[in-house]
Amino acid sequence: MQPQQETFTREQVRALYDRPLLPLLDEARRVHLQHHPDNEVQLCTLLSVKTGGCAEDCGYCSQSSHHETKVNAEKMLDVDEVLASARRAKEIGSTRFCMGWAWREVKDGPAFERILTMVKGVKELGLEACVTAGMLTDTQAARLKEAGLDAYNHNLDTSRENYRSIIKTRTYDDRLRTIDNVRKAGITVCSGGIIGIGESANDRCEMLRTLANLSPQPESVPINALVAIEGTPLANMPPVDPLDLVRMIAVARILMPKARVRLSAGRTSLTREAQMMCMYAGANSIFYGDTLLTTPNPEEADDLELIRAAGLNAMPPQVEGAPTTHTAAE
């Protein structure tokens, strides 16, 4: 019989978050080493398959049709373009290929059929396949599972209490419902949040507590720092303190010991030392490639140098045959 999963209280999570940073990092590192290789980081590539024109009003997003940004609505990429990008991702050492659609929700029809074809194609290349495309029904989730989808990303973004100040076009329960549909279909859950969007420390803790209290916990937890984009309601938010990002990753690692914690958006504003602290705190995945949907990301060469300097190895591909380890020196 599986041991019953611990349910965390608000007070427990806030006490953890408020620990002095160095003891917090020591604890996070101890937990990390119990559940993960100490020198491995997964490289993931994220491609925007359908850019702009989204009906949601997320205050941080350049792709919302509610905001006047430099991102214009574009047609969905065709299957060949997406699979060419996936091949390139594999060539540079990524083992997970994530595909994003700027949609409020997935709708049945030709576009959804193309998603299924793309997922099958990515899997045939020997890559993990992840999709993020908004709200999803249980039937759609089942079809994605049948196509071979490994993970579906649907971030909570922030706490339930703070959610309405950031997004008004859907509810927190809409988000949780999609996550539940994904879980019931047997697809792994990728869900995290963003800091720097005007939230309080309690909001940060509540977001992590909500994720940690899901049963089972998410297998993948991206932690993002806001990339302030001109034309969005959050364009003038102050930069995130890098140590706040380190703290969030450490708390996420302790609360969700088996999850792959992903150091996601906002890395271009971090020094390599700050990124190494995030990895020490338990981040064992980065998004790899020069663009994260529509926001900048570090250059590939810079990331390989970061991995080398930190003494890490890129996670080898999980495909048939003997695995090959990609190191920063390759």
Rank of each mutant, 00 (worst) to 15 (best):
I187T: 03
D174L: 05
I179P: 00
G121E: 01
D157H: 04
A142G: 14
Y172F: 14
L156Q: 04
I166N: 03
A133V: 08
S165F: 12
A147W: 01
Y163D: 01
Y152N: 03
G186C: 07
D150N: 15
A129T: 03
G148A: 10
Q140M: 11
Y152D: 04
D150I: 04
T139S: 15
T139W: 12
G186M: 07
I166Y: 02
Y163A: 01
G134Y: 10
V122Q: 02
L144V: 07
N153K: 07
G134P: 12
Y152I: 03
E146Q: 15
N155W: 02
S165V: 09
H154K: 10
L136K: 00
A147K: 05
R143F: 10
Y172K: 01
R183L: 14
G186L: 10
T171M: 13
N155S: 04
H154D: 11
V131C: 09
D157M: 05
G148L: 11
L176T: 07
R170F: 14
I179V: 09
G121L: 05
I167T: 08
N155A: 05
R164A: 13
K123C: 09
I179D: 02
L144E: 04
C130E: 03
I166R: 08
T178D: 02
L125D: 13
K123Q: 11
E161I: 11
G148Q: 08
V119C: 05
R170T: 14
R177T: 12
G134S: 14
Q140I: 12
A185T: 06
L144N: 01
D150F: 13
R175W: 06
R164V: 10
D174P: 03
R170W: 14
I166M: 07
A147Y: 03
R143I: 12
E124W: 10
G186N: 09
K184S: 11
K168P: 01
I179L: 14
A141M: 11
G121C: 07
T137A: 09
E146F: 09
A141R: 00
G126H: 10
Y163T: 01
G121H: 01
H154P: 02
A129P: 05
L149Y: 07
L125M: 11
L144K: 00
G121R: 00
I179A: 04
A142H: 11
K123V: 10
L149D: 07
I179C: 05
D180A: 11
S165H: 13
R175L: 06
T139E: 15
L149M: 06
V122L: 02
T158V: 06
R175K: 05
N155P: 00
A129G: 04
R175F: 05
D138M: 14
G148S: 09
A133Y: 05
Y163N: 02
D180R: 10
T171I: 14
G134N: 12
E161M: 06
Y152F: 10
S165D: 14
T139V: 15
S159C: 05
I179N: 00
L136T: 08
A129C: 03
T139A: 15
I166D: 01
K168T: 15
Y172D: 01
N181G: 02
Y163F: 11
T178S: 06
M135T: 12
T132D: 11
Y172A: 09
L125N: 10
A129K: 00
N162R: 13
V119T: 08
Y152P: 01
